[in-house]
Amino acid sequence: MRQGRENIIDLHRLEFGFRKGRSRGHSLAGPVSTTAFGGELIAVMGRNGSGKSTLLRTISGLMKPLQGEIQIFNSPLAEYSRKQLARIMGFVSTEVVRVPGLRVSDLVALGRYPHTNWFGKLSSSDHEVVERALDLTSLQALRDRDLEELSDGERQRAMIARTLAQDTRILILDEPTAFLDLSHRYAIIDLLRNLALEHGKTILYSTHDLQIALQQSDKIWLIHEQTILEGAPEDMVLSGQLRDALRQTDSGTEIEMDLQTGEFAVKRMLHHNISLSSRSDELRMWTNKALERNGFKVVENKEASIHVLVETRDGHPKWTIEKNDKRIELNSIYDLSLYLRTIV
């Protein structure tokens, strides 16, 4: 049930940043104009300090834009009351919430508040929404647990469940996968993907995780040099925009993106030539990585003075290293690295 090209969030010449006192404030980016359509999962990317959180907070109405306008469902954000906004937009921040005595089911029920009376009494339909949110996030088994007892991944899921109970068309999440291990990261993003695909929600999330953003988002908003570049992740790889934006230069280390795999690697100065031969592609690839890490450039046989041969004998890989007619056999890549450091 994906909505077609329904405009959900429109940025019109938006300039966002911090307001300081009465001055105009410190602008992080803008003016930018772009649109989030119905059912889209959008990854907001950019370097540290580029303004990802600020953009998300500005769209959530937690911060005021410096210039320009945000429209939600084709009406200016400023014209919504806080209460109206709470019914169409849910927000998950990076803040780690620890409340002693707050149970998971109570936390999720808090999400119904924009829909309840002054005392926060839940109707039976409110309870159903809460149950559904617990189901979708696989939290039924943990529903009576204290929030303090949850792991980071479980807590993040509970915070997302609370937003689901808020039953909003738009979800905004600031770094939902921070602090999580790989499998939990994928679990969270898979959940978001599902919510966008099956439930037609428009989801904006910020992340530093390029792999996940590349695989799992419909669109990337890349904040770079005071503007937002956007496109399908693949478009942004092919156009080189991602590589240019994420290449680090100010921290001294250069990283390069591999256009084949979409992976980033630290760019190294390779001082020594070495040759590498192996029948197994797997062994060759991993040995190559280790050699590059140690400052060796893998070249043709005749250009190198050091030669490495990898072969499998009796089911175990062996590395034979040859320099000036001296041969040494090693049992692991670690031993190989140790030895290489002694001969150069």
């Binding site: 109405g61 937690l62 009351s81 806080r82 709470a86 803040e95 508040y113 005392f119 808020q166």
Partner: peptide
């Protein structure tokens, strides 16, 4: 008592309280 909902949402911090429609 009038503020009971506000108190409950404030448990999660100001930003969450605001995002749930609380002044």
């Amino acid at each position: 008592l009038v503020c009971v909902k506000i108190l409950n949402t404030l448990l999660l911090g100001e930003n969450y309280a605001r995002s749930m429609g609380v002044g």
